[in-house]
């Protein structure tokens, strides 16, 4: 049986639907006022999400990708064929860095050590910086390179291509000009909208440009808000529909109705 053919037993499914319904009611009660039931539902949601994430990380990440290859050399050899890195880089260094991060994190939760003594604690704090620095550095490097190759360059080239002088079509040129005015105005508003430099002399011309940019920003925000609203309404309607259909089909609900009658 694969996970794609497995299904929950009906009783568990029913319990899930009813529990979801009750927790939804708790959350909706927030509309009346801030209350303990709404808080309880939020805490359950946050706790269950964190608990689920913890179990998932152990079962789906740490166990099969790190611990199993380390404990079973045959599996390690099989995985090794798909990796270009030696086992030291694939498993041992990540394990050591992960342990350092955990120990450093636990140490960070405690009160800082006194100026003298506790050299082991100080060493742990120092070593804990290593994985954090690696994570931050890699994240920043990858993010900046990606932003240039995936957004900045293609978007700039696309905008520049619209206004090529060889094109004898007024439409793209006008679009390019409009893009320049709106983009420049928005940047000007964000960086120097309140600056005193824009309130006197030639700066007033730039103030006009920033004014256009500000209007354009709010227009864009309005568009995003309208679609965001559509998304949230979809969620609400889907949830109402789910309860209207699924709740009535549960055996537990039928039993409760029968008892009430």
């Amino acid at each position: 049986m694969t996970p794609f053919t497995a299904a929950l037993p009906p009783l568990w499914n029913d319990l899930g639907v009813i529990l979801g319904f009750v927790l939804s009611l708790f959350l909706f009660s927030y509309l009346l006022k801030e209350n303990v039931l709404a808080r309880l539902a939020q805490y359950i949601l946050a706790g269950a999400s964190l608990g689920y994430a913890g179990v998932l990380i152990v079962k789906n990440v740490l166990a099969p990708r790190l611990l199993a290859p380390l404990l079973a050399p045959r599996l390690a050899l099989q995985i090794q064929e798909s990796l270009a890195t030696p086992p030291l880089l694939s498993w041992w260094i990540p394990l050591i860095l992960g342990l350092l991060l955990w120990l450093g994190g636990i140490e960070a939760m405690r009160r800082p050590p006194a100026a003298q003594g506790a050299s082991l604690r100080k060493l742990l704090r120092l070593l804990g910086v290593l994985p954090v620095a690696l994570l931050l550095g890699t994240g920043l490097g990858v993010g900046i390179a990606g932003a240039i190759q995936g957004t900045l360059a293609p978007q700039f080239l696309r905008a520049a291509a619209l206004g090529l002088p060889g094109e004898e079509v007024a439409g793209p040129v006008l679009t390019g000009l409009l893009t320049l005015i709106v983009t420049g105005g928005a940047l000007l508003h964000l960086r120097a909208g309140e600056s005193r430099l824009l309130q006197r002399g030639p700066g007033r011309l730039l103030a006009g440009w920033a004014w256009i940019g500000q209007r354009a920003l709010w227009l864009a925000a309005g568009l995003i808000f309208a679609r965001l609203l559509a998304a949230r309404l979809s969620l609400l309607i889907a949830q109402l529909n789910y309860f209207a259909t699924q709740l009535q089909e549960t055996g537990l609900w039928q039993w409760l109705l029968a008892q009430l009658r």
């Binding site: 996970p3 789906n60 166990a63 099969p64 990708r65 199993a68 599996l75 099989q78 995985i79 064929e81 798909s82 990796l83 270009a84 890195t85």
Partner: peptide, 16 residues
């Protein structure tokens, strides 16, 4: 290299 990014599937089975 998706093979290196995902060396095992969710059941822990390697590419073989």
């Amino acid at each position: 290299a998706p093979g290196a990014g995902v060396p095992v599937n969710i059941q822990g089975q390697p590419a073989q």
